[in-house]
Amino acid sequence: MTNKEVVLTIEGLKKLEEELELLKTVRRREVAARIKQALDFGDISENSEYDDAKNEQAFIEGRIITLEKMLRNARVIDEVEGTETVALGAKVRLKDVDYDDEEDYFIVGSAEADPSTNKISNESPVGKAVLGHPKGTIVEVNVPAGTVRYQILDIQK
Results as ranks from 00 to 15, higher is better:
23 L>Q: 05
54 K>P: 10
141 V>H: 08
43 D>R: 09
36 K>H: 09
25 T>W: 01
27 R>P: 07
112 E>M: 05
33 A>Y: 02
38 A>W: 01
29 R>D: 11
142 N>D: 11
133 H>I: 10
99 Y>S: 14
115 P>F: 10
126 V>F: 03
119 K>T: 00
113 A>I: 01
105 Y>L: 11
72 R>Y: 08
139 V>L: 07
101 D>T: 15
90 A>P: 10
42 G>N: 01
63 R>C: 00
48 S>C: 06
78 D>V: 13
133 H>P: 13
106 F>V: 10
115 P>E: 14
33 A>L: 12
100 D>W: 09
31 V>A: 06
90 A>V: 02
112 E>G: 07
110 S>C: 13
43 D>H: 03
13 L>G: 08
57 Q>H: 12
66 T>W: 13
14 K>P: 07
124 S>W: 01
142 N>F: 06
93 R>F: 08
86 V>M: 05
119 K>I: 00
48 S>F: 14
58 A>P: 13
84 E>W: 03
53 A>F: 01
57 Q>I: 07
5 E>P: 13
28 R>T: 11
14 K>R: 15
4 K>S: 15
61 E>Y: 01
70 M>T: 04
120 I>V: 02
38 A>D: 00
20 L>S: 03
145 A>C: 07
129 A>D: 04
82 G>E: 00
57 Q>T: 07
55 N>V: 10
37 Q>F: 11
44 I>A: 10
101 D>E: 15
125 P>N: 05
120 I>S: 08
103 E>H: 15
79 E>D: 10
85 T>P: 03
28 R>E: 06
84 E>K: 12
50 Y>H: 03
48 S>E: 13
22 L>V: 09
39 L>W: 01
31 V>R: 10
17 E>W: 06
95 K>D: 04
7 V>P: 14
144 P>K: 09
24 K>G: 04
57 Q>S: 11
147 T>L: 11
26 V>G: 13
4 K>C: 05
129 A>N: 01
113 A>E: 06
125 P>H: 05
130 V>S: 03
122 N>H: 13
59 F>I: 12
81 E>Q: 13
134 P>Q: 07
73 N>C: 06
55 N>P: 12
40 D>C: 00
16 L>F: 02
45 S>E: 08
58 A>V: 08
144 P>T: 02
50 Y>M: 04
138 I>F: 09
30 E>D: 11
58 A>E: 13
65 I>V: 12
19 E>M: 04
96 D>Q: 08
103 E>N: 15
134 P>Y: 04
30 E>P: 13
